[in-house]
Nucleic acid binder design. Structure first.
Lengths: 150, 150
DNA sequence: GATTTTTGGTTTCATTATTAAACCGAAAAA
DNA sequence: TTTTTCGGTTTAATAATGAAACCAAAAATC
């Protein structure tokens, strides 16, 4: 196999995102990180991923700036993996995936987890709007090319 | 390799979504579909994907209900792949990926594409809010378990 | 302080997935 | 009628993944 085509040079931001977190495991690791997991063993147990693969994915996520290795809070020599500010900016991606799953991938009364606002206990809302606040869907949008330097 | 672990039974909606569209190519195909591509050859040319893999991915996306095969509008025998209503519900996922890429994966003045509201020409907004309209981030949320039948 | 267990990997090997390229029949175009 | 395009399938080589065995260092236990 020739090395998988990189999308680093693509001018489509979605493609570049997928280049970084578009493989099978990365977003699942990020999800677990949002759920508060930090240690190698925690991820491994939660995901059932092979350890060598986990090693490589964590390295890539750290190299991309999504996770960082910080000394564990309890003061030992061990390290833990934490979401960086950049990693936390994946929150909307996780929420969007979650909403899609909730709507289409569960039977009506099936058990599932729900993301709620801590303060109110009410479900989190995600919406896509025009600048005037009007909700818009894919058919009301268009993709422009923004040339260099703008 | 044992068959890759399926997340169909996971109660986390994000995990189920990733089970359906979390592989390397599927979201790129969906992106192209949002961009108006419909034909096998168009996807193949756009993505540079091997044809047998594209065949399989398209089949899976159709089987999942994200794409559908419809007779081409020009009336021939040929078919085209179109986003279903369910497929269009992936719009927030694509927008979220795009926003992340725009923010973190481009140099300041680098050329890129931009998703805008057709009517105003202004960039599309994505926000995550509590039910009262207040914007919230990952640290203000918590995941609840919703048992069967609720 | 010595021993045992846990953690966080690395290495190896077998299996699966992906690729590129050649090939193909049916439909469309010339 | 011939040629080209389209939408694949098949095949063989290569890369990615997984499971299991292994390992050193740190932590916990005795």
């Amino acid at each position: 196999m020739v090395a998988r085509k990189s999308l680093k040079g693509d001018y489509c931001p979605s493609a570049r995102s997928l280049d970084v977190i578009g493989d099978w495991w990365s977003l699942l690791i990020v999800r677990d990180a949002f759920d508060g997991l930090t240690r190698f063993g925690e991820f491994q147990k939660s995901l059932g991923i092979a350890k060598n693969i986990l090693t490589e994915r964590l390295r890539t996520l750290v190299a991309s700036g999504i996770l960082e290795l910080v000394p564990t809070s309890e003061g030992g020599t061990r390290m833990e993996y934490r979401l960086t500010a950049m990693g936390k900016d994946l929150f909307p991606v996780m929420v969007a995936l979650r909403k899609f799953g909730e709507r289409h991938l569960f039977a009506p009364a099936e058990e599932h987890s729900l993301l709620v606002d801590r303060a109110s206990g009410q479900p989190v809302q995600l919406d896509i709007r025009a600048q005037d606040g009007r909700p818009i869907g894919p058919d009301e949008t268009i993709i422009l090319k923004v040339p260099e330097g703008e």
